[in-house]
Design a protein around this nucleic acid. Structure first.
Lengths: 255, 255
DNA sequence: CGGCAAGTTGAGCCAGGTCAACTCCGGTGG
DNA sequence: CCACCGGAGTTGACCTGGCTCAACTTGCCG
């Protein structure tokens, strides 16, 4: 490790997680990027300022959970997306799509990058380019899946899907049946497009059926993963059907 | 224009639309990309084959509307995303997120690219890189906005938002109050997470209030854009539809 | 012009939203 | 150490937007 490695980077998860953008940068690139960047900590319920969005339209989540919130005229609020460690956010061409407010759901460490240096790194470092590209396409698919969840699933099914989504995005060892829920119930409700009351009832329902165990508000344990998966896949049969992935019976016509 | 310009590219919207990836490629790059690529036409209700997805995980929509569909166990179907001309689809790291079926909603012309040559173009051509990046981030924000629409909006509001989404994505002259709806009512319903019956009732409602005029099933005309905007922004104030105050209520980001 | 898919209209019903009351818990100060 | 407070979560009772089902009309293609 180079002695020139910036201090703030040497402690950052973006640098230590092998799957992250910064981890693929050379020390020189890291120094260059860092020289034009700055870490900032945002407390819960605080927003990323307009100024930051303008001056540093490219940023990366180092830790915590950042939400993108939409507000309707009459006060209804929605968490349209949640961003977690390693996610890159490029606001440069978000002007046409009006993007909502960026609000921290817990203490967030944000690395505000220089667009110019970021672009340079993308241009010159193929590995970094691939990782950034992968992160963005991943975010796209995640958003699309989330939209699919919201479109047709019932409350219980949405909650089941959410549990799997969180488990998949968690950095910890996969396969662990303990799932850490990093946000409040009310935020969870807003993300899933439902009311806190309904979320509460659904947790109770799943626990009552012995599918999960809710120890703490922020930790649940999956007791019956296949059953949970069936619910998240929209299987409403009482005893549940088979637990394979839904098959798409479709015509097939290119090739 | 080089005499070597591939025949199929010379007629393709991806090449002629200035905002598109292929338009930024040099003739040489276009020839190289084309040598490893192939156009295919998919008829309505047909799917992009598994084989294509495997062999050509990177593709671009040249014309038509392609949908990404999710199917639940009990048959509920959702259109999670719609892809239109110019959209780039990179399936290479879609394995972790199970992506649904890619199904044409009308006649789709798809350009199946070579990942290798695509990456090379991205690496060497800054303009092409920026455009590809912009397209993907755009898709991400679109998906997020769509998720926000589905989460908390009511049927009428979702339909209003959809009308604006389609108008914004349309290549034709902006500002035109005629909006062409390129998909069937039932597909629209699946995209918005509602029933065809409800879509029908909502169109009737908007027309009845004098906000839109539905001439043909596939063409509507916006008669009162501010009112439509208010509805899409969730303004439920008393006469949410009348021509009273022509306020320029853009969606509030924060505050 | 016949046949079928797509879309519309109407009547009834239920999942989940709404509202209000209550519990739980962590922090604060006397 | 305990009383108090406020925000978060839970529970119960009620209500409604939009789903469901079924019948009907319209539009499209051969």
């Amino acid at each position: 490790m180079s002695p020139h490695l910036p201090e703030q980077c040497s402690h950052c998860s973006m640098y230590f997680d092998a799957e992250n953008f910064c981890a693929k940068l050379s020390d020189d690139e890291l120094v260059a990027l860092n020289a034009q960047s700055s870490l900032v900590t945002i407390k819960r319920d605080e927003a990323v300022t307009e100024e930051t969005q303008k001056l540093h339209p490219v940023m990366a989540i180092s830790s915590g959970v950042l939400s993108l919130q939409h507000l309707l005229h009459d006060g209804r609020k929605t968490i349209a997306a949640i961003l977690m460690r390693g996610d890159i956010l490029d606001l440069r061409n978000s002007t046409r799509n009006q993007l909502g407010a960026l609000i921290a759901l817990n203490s967030v460490t944000l690395c505000r990058l220089s667009p110019v240096v970021f672009d340079a790194a993308i241009a010159e470092n193929p590995q970094a380019r691939m990782l950034a590209w992968a992160n963005i396409t991943d975010q796209t698919f995640r958003a699309i899946n989330h939209a699919a969840d919201l479109a047709k699933k019932q409350a219980l099914e949405k909650l089941a899907s959410f549990i799997f989504e969180i488990r998949n995005r968690d950095v910890r060892v996969p396969g662990n049946d303990h799932v850490h829920i990093p946000i409040r119930r009310r935020d969870l409700a807003e993300y899933l497009g439902m009311q806190p009351e309904t979320v509460s009832r659904c947790f109770k329902d799943l626990a009552g059926r012995g599918i999960i165990h809710v120890s703490d508000l922020s930790v649940i344990r999956i007791l019956n993963a296949p059953a949970l998966r069936r619910i998240s896949n929209g299987d409403r049969s009482p005893k549940g059907g088979r637990l394979d992935v839904p098959s798409f019976n479709v015509l097939v016509a290119d090739a």
